[in-house]
């Protein structure tokens, strides 16, 4: 299961983003179809990719059939960014690969396998093992305040931020600017003099230089 702390319970750890660009006036009325189109799709053992991400209910990551009531809470768009991944323990894969390789060598009467045969064998073993496993599941709360256009992602991982950026832009056709000291300052609406000062800003040093200490 994913993290239990987030928008709905426990202490809060998050990153903030500013939603910018061509934001529709009626987000609930115009985006539900695209949210549903980008809902989480279960992984298949035969997939080439090792992981998959998509939207789920913020309350329950197993609920991926999203409707208005599950997503829009007054002025908030609430979603779970669900990320599933096949995780095959290294020693397990190694042991199964060795057995499969030996069986194939015996069957073909060979002493060793070529690179391509090894790669094909690995794909086959991985798919077989995936059928015996369940993917690991994590879900990260995402809350977009439509009044302020500030979005909270309940994770501080750069990888999860990148996943959100991709999925969010694909779904809502808007931009996401990560909050940072610089973007937060810029958002204040600096006047021309402040913007010039900002462009040429140098870090403040509180250590005294030798001539100051004298």
């Amino acid at each position: 299961m994913g993290p239990t702390l987030g928008a709905l319970r426990g202490s809060l750890t998050f990153s903030r983003f500013y939603v910018t660009g061509d934001i529709p006036d009626d987000v609930p009325g115009t985006t539900l179809k695209r949210i549903r189109a980008n809902a989480f799709q279960p992984l298949s053992p035969d997939d080439e990719k090792n992981e998959g991400a998509g939207w789920a209910s913020i309350e329950d990551p197993f609920v991926t059939d999203l409707d208005h009531e599950k997503v829009f809470y007054n002025e908030y768009v609430c979603l779970g960014l669900r990320l599933d991944r096949w995780v095959i323990p290294g020693p397990l894969l190694k042991a199964h690969l060795r057995d499969a390789e030996q069986a194939l060598l015996a069957k073909r009467g060979l002493e060793r396998l070529g690179r391509q045969a090894k790669a094909e064998l690995k794909t086959m073993v991985v798919r077989k093992l995936r059928r015996q496993l369940v993917p690991s599941l994590k879900s990260y709360d995402v809350v977009w305040n439509l009044r302020t256009n500030v979005l909270h992602l309940y994770s501080q991982s750069e990888r999860i931020s990148a996943l959100l950026d991709d999925l969010f832009k694909r779904t809502f056709k808007v931009d996401l600017v990560p909050e940072s000291p610089g973007t937060a300052a810029d958002r204040l609406g600096l006047d021309a003099k402040e913007a010039r000062a900002m462009a040429g800003l140098e870090p403040t040093i509180l250590a005294r230089l030798e001539e100051e200490a004298r």
Binding site: P181, L201, P203, L206
Partner: peptide, 19 residues
């Protein structure tokens, strides 16, 4: 300022904010 510069080039402002 370019967005990347605004983000990466001004991180020090956060440390100055705390101080």
């Amino acid at each position: 300022m370019e967005l990347l510069d605004l983000i990466e080039g001004r991180r020090f402002m956060g440390r100055e904010f705390v101080v």
